[in-house]
């Protein structure tokens, strides 16, 4: 999530801290979103279930997000691939430093 986001946005400051003026607005918008979602679906539904559905894609708007410092990558690359090996070869002391 963060990877794609940071690539797209040229300004990381804005990504992290938000635009100064819309700081409060963005929080309000998120609340509106969640209300809209719940009214679209069935009328009676335990709130817990809605949470679970949301948990599939953990978002920044989820105020009860899991407190977990480990970052899980969705998929791992195959590091026996020759191209990948080359791409980080120079991050090791065994790399080719004569260039």
């Amino acid at each position: 999530l963060a990877r794609t986001m940071s690539r797209r946005s040229d300004n990381l400051m804005q990504l992290v801290y938000g635009l100064p003026s819309t700081k409060l607005g963005s929080v309000a918008e998120e609340n509106d979103d969640s209300e809209a979602n719940s009214s679209d679906d069935e009328f009676f539904r335990p709130k817990g279930q809605k949470q679970q559905a949301k948990n599939e894609s953990p978002s920044f708007g989820d105020i009860d997000g899991e407190d977990c410092s480990k970052f899980f990558k969705a998929e791992l690359k195959d590091w026996s691939n020759e191209d990948l090996i080359k791409s980080i070869r120079d991050r090791f002391v065994t790399g080719n430093w004569s260039k």
């Binding site: 963060a2 940071s6 040229d10 990381l12 400051m13 992290v16 801290y17 920044f60 970052f71």
Partner: peptide
């Protein structure tokens, strides 16, 4: 490396509590 979601949230918490803003340059 790339900022993690947890890292970003930490930066926001730091701003809220300590009033410290980082200058972030890719």
């Amino acid at each position: 490396g790339q900022l993690t979601p947890y890292g970003i949230e930490t930066l926001r918490n730091i701003r809220d509590f300590l009033d410290v803003k980082f200058i972030i340059k890719p």
